[in-house]
Design a protein around this nucleic acid. Structure first.
Lengths: 179, 179
DNA sequence: CCGCCATCTTGTCAATGACAAGTTAGAGTC
DNA sequence: GACTCTAACTTGTCATTGACAAGATGGCGG
């Protein structure tokens, strides 16, 4: 077995998403990740220190991806993008909002979270309408993922748009920059 | 040490809420619950079969409590009650919406979930406005709990009301029974 | 007063996270 | 082109955990 994997760190982060998608975060195991990557059981520790370190890196990556996904000029589309991110990167989304799983004060994570927060607050700000939109996006995404939301035969993105439409109409075409 | 605890099942469920409130679901340990209740490490297994069984019972209890909490005549107050439940019974709320932690097909759990769902759908139904309100309530609650929501010096219940107010005004005084 | 059996205990096992100590390979140096 | 240096990875170990098996206890029906 080769001693130098190439990019084990990357492979482990990808294996993490796979494993969570398959069995949920609760069943996530460092040793299973090692097996998936074809390395010894202690190899992941070398790169991440411990399990919390792995999930810190995983959540950081998630915040960076979210920040990138939220770049759009329309207030409505930002909400749609938020839901799309949550549903397409379920594993990241799930870990990101469970700070008990990682080190929430890690500098790199805080920086990434701040970046995605900046995008979000530009549209949502401290204003109730933006916060309501964020809550709808986040609530719908988590309810849909957990299976609690009705109408599972429908396209979730279509449903999401119908929910945003329930907010005052002026909000759907407002980037928030005017506030 | 007494062989008959009295109501160990009850004590364990209460210890579960305590333990989750203190260290999160991720760190929940059957043996720790046993220690908290002052019984041997295998006692919990006798009552719940396994960890998933314990959390199934815990989530079932949560759904029953939620169903009771949602009994109100006002659409708006139901949303407020939902948020209040989530914040006051954090542990139950967290477990309820993580079906990977328990047996989602358990008959008693399904019954309890259906009961709380009935209350919810009476107000929310299949209609977008009700679903938007549910999403706001659920999203706000989870974001507040995770610490991601801004304005943490404010009273969360006041913030929640300001969010519901962003929905069309006619929705805030509609039980949905007319649909 | 005696057996029954739900309740709880003790004992054990495989899996896991964390850590310590050893091994390898490839990069830099001369 | 051998030599060292060190990051990357391995092997080995330990305490903890969930799950299960088997035994102990004590209240309750007969």
């Amino acid at each position: 077995m080769a001693y130098h994997h190439g990019d084990l760190r990357r492979a482990l982060l990808e294996a993490t998403a796979e494993a969570i998608d398959e069995h949920g975060v609760a069943a996530l195991s460092m040793r299973d990740l090692a097996r998936r990557a074809g390395v010894s059981h202690a190899a992941p520790t070398h790169h991440f220190g411990d399990k919390a370190g792995l999930l810190t890196a995983f959540a950081t990556e998630g915040y960076e991806q979210l920040a990138a996904a939220l770049v759009t000029d329309s207030f409505l589309e930002m909400g749609v993008a938020y839901v799309r991110f949550a549903l397409s990167r379920r594993a990241q989304f799930e870990v990101m909002f469970r700070p008990d799983l990682y080190r929430a004060d890690d500098p790199e994570l805080v920086a990434a979270r701040t970046r995605s927060g900046a995008a979000l607050y530009t549209g949502a700000g401290e204003r109730s309408k933006g916060q309501a939109a964020w809550s709808i996006a986040h609530g719908f995404a988590t309810l849909w993922i957990s299976g609690a939301f009705p109408g599972r035969d429908q396209d979730p993105m279509v449903v999401a748009r119908s929910l945003f439409a329930q907010l005052g109409q002026d909000a759907t075409n407002d980037t928030g920059a005017a506030g």
